[in-house]
């Protein structure tokens, strides 16, 4: 029953994860794995506790969050505006689409060193990287989405006497909202990737900076602790994004 019933799926997953941690811990204690490379879960937990206990983590969390969330917001706004304009005004599409295609073709994190040179090692370069990662994804979501909008809905608005602005307001923008919300989790992931990689390349604070510091001091426990922390943070944001999506797309 418990092994097959879908209602107990979470319980099964938690049990499996707990077992995995136990085996990992035991392997560490019996020196089956080298703690220099793979520290035991208890050592990682202790590292995480220290980060919060002495309050060191807060300025770093604040820096990463600020960069990721500002980059996310700007990326969504600019991506939507460019996507809508390009889809509705073909001459603009001729200019914007090739640039976006080029940006999409390269691994955009390679721009991180350039942003550090242009904008310095403070917050701006991290925001810029998070922004560019998010804006390209949102642009293609919106641009492609609007071009595939249900023609029947468009004709419905036209036959009811709606203007071009009515079309944008009642058909295109709600469609865009649905597509953007559907891609919000991807965008959140990109925003945190941008912020962290930016900090990794050159920063004075942030989770990426701490990761870089842990790497340079061969502190694997700290690295694991930071990776775990980022996973938890992003999962919490995913949950919030999921709730927002469920509320705003309740008509689906």
């Amino acid at each position: 029953m418990i092994l097959t019933d879908p209602r107990f799926a979470l319980l099964r997953q938690l049990t499996a994860f707990g077992l995995f941690l136990l085996i990992w811990e035991a392997a560490g204690r019996y020196e089956l794995i080298n703690p220099l490379f793979v520290p035991s879960p208890s050592r990682i937990g202790a590292s995480l506790y220290e980060l919060f206990a002495d309050g060191r983590i807060w300025p770093h969390l604040e820096a990463t969050f600020t960069a990721a969330l500002v980059g996310l917001a700007l990326g969504i706004i600019v991506g939507i505006v460019l996507g809508v304009v390009a889809a509705l005004v073909p001459p603009i599409a001729e200019l914007v689409e090739p640039v976006m295609t080029l940006l999409n073709a390269i691994p955009r994190v390679v721009l991180a060193p350039l942003f550090v040179i242009w904008l310095g090692i403070e917050l701006a370069s991290k925001i810029a990287l998070a922004f560019i990662l998010v804006a390209v994804v949102i642009f293609f979501t919106v641009y492609g989405g609007i071009r595939q909008v249900d023609r029947k809905l468009v004709e419905r608005i036209v036959t009811l006497g709606g203007s071009r602005w009515d079309l944008v307001r009642h058909v295109y923008l709600p469609s865009v909202a649905a597509w953007v919300l559907g891609n919000l989790k991807v965008a959140v992931g990109f925003a945190f990737t941008g912020a962290t990689v930016g900090e990794f390349v050159g920063a004075s604070r942030g989770l990426g900076y701490l990761l870089s510091f842990a790497q340079s001091t061969y502190n694997a426990a700290l690295m694991f602790a930071l990776i775990f922390l980022m996973m938890v943070v992003v999962l919490l944001i995913f949950a919030a994004a999921g709730r927002l999506e469920k509320f705003l797309l309740r008509w689906q």
Binding site: D150, K152, L153, E155, R156, T159, H170, V171, P174, A178, W251, Q252
Partner: peptide, 15 residues
Amino acid sequence: EIGMLFQDDALLPWK
């Protein structure tokens, strides 16, 4: 003064 009813109801799903 002309109205049109299509084969598909084409209602806006978000309204």
